Computed example of a mutant assay.
Amino acid sequence: MATDTATHEQQFDRIATGEGFIAALDQSGGSTPKALALYGVMEDAYSNDEEMFAEIQKMRARIITAPDFNSKKILGAILFEKTMDNAIDGTPVPTYLWEKCGVVPFLKVDKGLADEADGVQLMKPMPDLDALLTRAKAAGIFGTKMRSVVKDANAAGIKSVVAQQFEVGLQIAKAGLVPIIEPEVDIHSASKSEAEALLKAEIAAQLDALPSGTKVALKLTIPNEAGLYDSLADHAAVVRVVALSGGYSTDDACERLSKNGKMIASFSRALTEGLNAGMSDADYNSALGANIDKIYKASI
């Protein structure tokens, strides 16, 4: 389902101006066993990576096909590569999301984090990115997401993280997709406020340097100072600023987010909090619906 121009414009408008949030369904490799364990699927339920990813696909399919997973409160969903290549009831997942749910599909493209240096973790190299972007576009993907992590208020480290994010972001934008640039600030950082101030300045400088007409989204940790990123949200190059929950509980993340009027949620763990594979459909759909409702209210 390659996206035509009219569909792309419709999806762009939805992400830029719609009411709601972006669901993050993109746990991959290292975080998958933890996500499955929280979901009630222990490591003895699968014996290799293929079986593990089959379990995560079942989890994601159950979320996506739940009655409350629709365009009323959800603008987009971020997928892991294996999920993009999978299907629900015979329909490719990106197509299912857009055509059945009205939800804009995004793809996580990073290959994980490098070792910490200068108080940050850069992204590992992505030598096959161009090929992946071509496949993503053909599959009907609208945009991408890639994550780095800031641990300390180290000016050199933060500069390098933001420079790398924007360099790769520009490559993605040139391929016709909208990149979500995600330099996460660790919520446990002793210098979180200082790191956020440095991060904001570096992002602003990179936004100003983008070629005219380039559009990006930003995914940032909810800042200690409410409204800190409002000026970034107002930048001409920014489609939307979304927030990651970063390990805060659903209630805590929603409460913090509600103080930032120009950010919407893009939560992963907070979205699935309290869900268990063994729940009845009624209990499962009720719990997921309650999480969706909380996150939606905090986003508007």
Rank of each mutant, 00 (worst) to 15 (best):
L170M: 10
M59E: 02
A282I: 11
Q27P: 00
L132M: 13
L25V: 03
Q206T: 02
L129S: 02
I181P: 03
L220F: 01
F142E: 01
R60C: 12
F21A: 03
L75H: 04
D128N: 15
L107P: 13
M1W: 11
S191W: 02
V93R: 00
Y229K: 11
Y296V: 10
S71V: 05
G274P: 06
M126H: 06
A217P: 05
Y46T: 10
E55A: 14
L75D: 03
G102Y: 09
L79F: 04
V150G: 03
D234W: 07
S258R: 01
A155E: 09
V239S: 01
L218V: 02
A173N: 12
G30Q: 04
E99W: 05
K145C: 05
E19Y: 07
Y229T: 09
M59P: 00
D118C: 04
R60H: 13
Y248C: 11
G227N: 00
A77L: 12
S299A: 10
A6Q: 03
L288Y: 10
V103H: 02
G274Q: 01
F166E: 04
L113G: 07
A54P: 02
L210T: 12
I187M: 02
I22F: 14
G247W: 04
S266F: 05
D234G: 12
A35W: 05
I63M: 07
N291K: 01
D44C: 08
Q206D: 07
E9D: 13
A2I: 14
D293S: 06
Q57P: 06
F142V: 09
Y46F: 15
V185E: 04
A204N: 04
I158L: 11
V178T: 13
G289S: 10
K58H: 11
D281Q: 08
G213E: 07
G274R: 01
A131C: 04
I300G: 09
G18P: 03
M146E: 08
T32I: 15
D234H: 08
A6P: 04
I64C: 13
I88M: 08
I292L: 08
V178F: 14
F166Y: 13
A298L: 00
F69A: 12
N86S: 15
E81L: 10
V103M: 06
R147L: 07
R240K: 13
A139Q: 09
I15L: 15
L107R: 10
E182M: 00
K82I: 14
A175Y: 11
A195K: 03
I78L: 14
G261R: 15
I172S: 04
A37E: 05
A243R: 03
L25F: 12
A204H: 06
E255P: 04
P183K: 03
A114F: 12
G20T: 05
L199R: 02
Q11A: 13
Q10I: 06
